[in-house]
Amino acid sequence: MDQGVAGPEAELRALMIAGLNGDGGAHARLLTELGGYLRGYFARRMGANAADLEDLVQETLLAVHLKRATYDRARPFTPWMFAVARYKLMDHFRRFGGRISVPLEDAGALFSEENPEEGAVRQDVARLLGKLPPRQSALLRDVKLTGLSMEEAAARAGMSTTAAKVSVHRGMKRLEKEVGDEDL
């Protein structure tokens, strides 16, 4: 799915660059989102029930963190991320046996949404959030998906905590209404 490739690049790259500039909140959001993609990518190659799936996800997130200085801000982010994920997967197979060769797909394989449930939900959420004004959707994402506290999210959005609470509440109401309308 093309959407899976074009979709996350802009957002992930912005988060990565913010993290390189020292923004811990953006870095946490980046790692959280990448965790989801990596779980799907590794599960498709190791089997969803592989005992070491989560270990590999964590090891790769750790590598993203430790090796982030090797990302060149002038280049696209997804090829960097895909090369790291593929390297970690090959390294895993090399150490623990199993299939040695990992096909050289394009970076889309990491960000594709083959995992039907997760992909569908992610797309739905992204589409719904897109209907809100940008500041409100960023706020909702921070609070409801990334798991920032209301205070942190308010600070990131540059508003008071009270205003952020109201905005999140209204945003949720509106999303509920959108979902309700679609179901009819």
């Binding site: 811990g24 870095h27 946490a28 790692l31 959280t32 964590q58 200085a69 801000r73």
Partner: peptide
């Protein structure tokens, strides 16, 4: 837990200089 790992890593988000490679 992966979320704990992410929190620990995010707490260590130091700025990275350009051209460090």
């Amino acid at each position: 837990k992966t979320s704990d790992l992410i929190a620990a890593l995010a707490a260590d988000t130091t700025p990275v200089r350009r051209a460090s490679v």
